Simulated assay, not measured.
Amino acid sequence: MVALGGGHGLAASLGALRRMTDRLTAVVTVADDGGSSGRLRAELDVLPPGDLRMALAALCDESEWGLTWRDLLQHRFTSPGSLDQHAVGNLLIVALWEILDDPVQGLDWVGRLLGARGRVLPMASVPLAISARVRGSDRVVVGQSHVATCDEEIEEVVLDPADPPACPESVEAVRAADWVILGPGSWYTSVMPHVLVPELARALHETTARTCLTLNLSSEDGEARGLTPAGHLDALAKHDPELRVDVVLADPTVVDDVEDLEAAARRLGARLLMRQVRRGDGTPHHDPLRLAAAYQDVFDDFLGDVGTPAR
């Protein structure tokens, strides 16, 4: 299994997939320019470590050892000084990068410390910048943190550099996968960037793996403003017309027009699977056990309402 994304969305899919396999690789966006990650990126000219840290924490061993190191990784300082809101894990990851001079090896060492059930890799070998063009205007929003909070409809996003070097291990993982899981997550800043790295996109087009696209549980007030569930799929297809998907997974509570979403899924070559994957408390967060059960239906080709085989 290879899961692509970033932030809380990727952590949600990893929390489900880790219950099913330890042959799991997370491929993580590296465009974050805000908070602790943005400060370290600007000061030390490194990949932003925050989303990588969150993916590692999601894969930690659930022993006392793993959970203690996970909590340390996620711990943030509170102070009136320069350490305020820095995550310990971000500092640890960047320190290992400086010692080892190899981002992938550094992440592997943190994974060993956590007893991680899987591997975490960066999407690209260099830090990226995201820009978004606003619909119906010439205005361009620059920077991941600004795009994520944009309150206008987004027409298009681009990366800078436009043709960045993909992480070779990430490309290899996609090509060798049985399944690729894309989403959930912030659509333009966590999900979309993977199809904008040419070498990684090419691997997604050419891999023999099947692909599952997981939709979000809410339309964010920021970057996804104005996007219906079908609109999410059409936006992805617009940015990568060659992308083909096998299954689109959606929670029925967020789908107002099932036929519209089914049509958008068909345009990607996919079938739609509707499953309850939301937590029972009503918050827009995925329940890891429900999401794992839905993924199991995806992998078993049980895509009907009552487990009708797809083939």
Score class of each variant (00 low, 15 high):
residue 1 M to W: 07
residue 1 M to G: 11
residue 2 V to S: 04
residue 2 V to M: 11
residue 7 G to S: 04
residue 9 G to H: 04
residue 21 T to A: 12
residue 27 V to K: 07
residue 28 V to T: 05
residue 29 T to A: 10
residue 30 V to S: 03
residue 37 S to W: 07
residue 38 G to Y: 00
residue 41 R to H: 03
residue 54 M to D: 10
residue 67 L to F: 11
residue 68 T to Q: 13
residue 71 D to A: 14
residue 75 H to Y: 15
residue 81 G to E: 05
residue 83 L to T: 10
residue 85 Q to I: 12
residue 90 N to A: 07
residue 95 A to F: 05
residue 101 D to H: 14
residue 114 L to N: 10
residue 117 R to M: 07
residue 124 A to L: 03
residue 128 L to G: 11
residue 130 I to S: 02
residue 139 R to W: 12
residue 142 V to Q: 11
residue 155 E to R: 11
residue 163 D to L: 12
residue 170 S to H: 05
residue 176 A to G: 13
residue 178 D to Q: 14
residue 180 V to E: 00
residue 185 G to M: 07
residue 188 Y to P: 07
residue 189 T to N: 02
residue 192 M to N: 04
residue 203 A to I: 09
residue 204 L to Q: 04
residue 205 H to R: 14
residue 205 H to N: 14
residue 209 A to M: 04
residue 210 R to T: 01
residue 216 N to G: 07
residue 227 L to M: 12
residue 229 P to D: 09
residue 235 A to Y: 06
residue 235 A to Q: 02
residue 238 K to E: 15
residue 243 L to I: 11
residue 248 V to D: 07
residue 251 D to I: 10
residue 254 V to T: 12
residue 257 D to I: 10
residue 259 E to G: 13
residue 262 E to K: 12
residue 265 A to W: 00
residue 267 R to G: 13
residue 283 T to M: 14
residue 283 T to P: 07
residue 284 P to L: 00
residue 288 P to R: 10
residue 292 A to V: 00
residue 295 Y to E: 04
residue 298 V to A: 04
residue 301 D to H: 13
residue 302 F to N: 14
residue 304 G to Q: 07
residue 305 D to C: 14
residue 306 V to E: 14
residue 309 P to T: 11
residue 311 R to F: 15
residue 311 R to T: 15
residue 311 R to D: 15
